[in-house]
Amino acid sequence: MDNSKILSLNGVRTYFELKRWGFMHAGYVRAVDGVSFDLARGEAVTIVGESGSGKTTLLRTILGLAKITDGEMIFGGRNLDYNNSRDLTWLRWQVGFVQQDPYGATAPFMSVHRILSEPLIVNKVPKIEREQRIREALDEVRLIPVDDFLHKYPHMLSGGQQQRLVVARALLLRPMLIVADEPVSMLDASVRVEVLELMGKIQETHNLGVIYITHDLSSVRYFSQRAFVMYAAKLVEKADVNEIVNNPQHPYTQVLLNAIPDPEPENVGKFKEIPSGEPPSLIKPPPGCRFHPRCTRKIDGLCDTEEPPEFEPRPNHFVECWLYKDGDRAA
């Protein structure tokens, strides 16, 4: 199979209008504010960012569940028209969705069989083929023997099994792309890896594109090729996963990685340098670089007034930070 792009986002913005008393315009929440990237077939990327940075909104935008305010999105070679409902319906069936909370993702009163039948019925898949596909999907996520699971209800499954069921459902319609919103954050460490390994295998077998979003880079680093760091509605750094981990360039990425501990007994005595303050408002983001109020390396008169464009200080390593304006790597 070819390695061509399946998804391209160019300057995508997704704003939510704020209304006062239900009708007066009171500004926008700029939840996604100028995001661009390409995703190749068979490639997995991780988007890591803090709570409220716009990760879920970005995924909802990709799923066609939130309307693009500006910019363009090309999926499977098609430049999507968000005003065309046929485009949107098509898109939704091409992208499989794995959401954060496995416990709330499936209707508790439906059996596994019913949960998996629903999307196929909606898509008018003939009955015989339906059964076949359900079995395949369950087998693929290792809910086996399949017959033991078909008639169970979600509460009879462990958290990891429920999340595998959600993955099975996302696979049913044979999507080109799977997007997963914190797919393992509600699970125990001991099962996280199991679910991620399974998703990794499925991604390889079907040459799927996968987008993971998470605030926990450690879990997914072995399951993705590239990582994007999101801060205040922007992707401030994009590179190969190992490159991000070993050579973080953006000051925000640097403090973020520094804040993530490994389980080491030495941590007890060490205090960490963490910038105080919190991510900015997305209604009135600060001028210039959005990280400048917390940044220890900001350049006065530049970072606080002008928005940094994207620089490429190292090959295929993109950073939205003024420190790299001269092209080379800043100390």
Partner: peptide, 10 residues
């Protein structure tokens, strides 16, 4: 086993 399941970043 539990310790071995913990992902490490650094």
């Amino acid at each position: 086993k539990l310790m071995a399941s913990v992902p490490t970043l650094h």
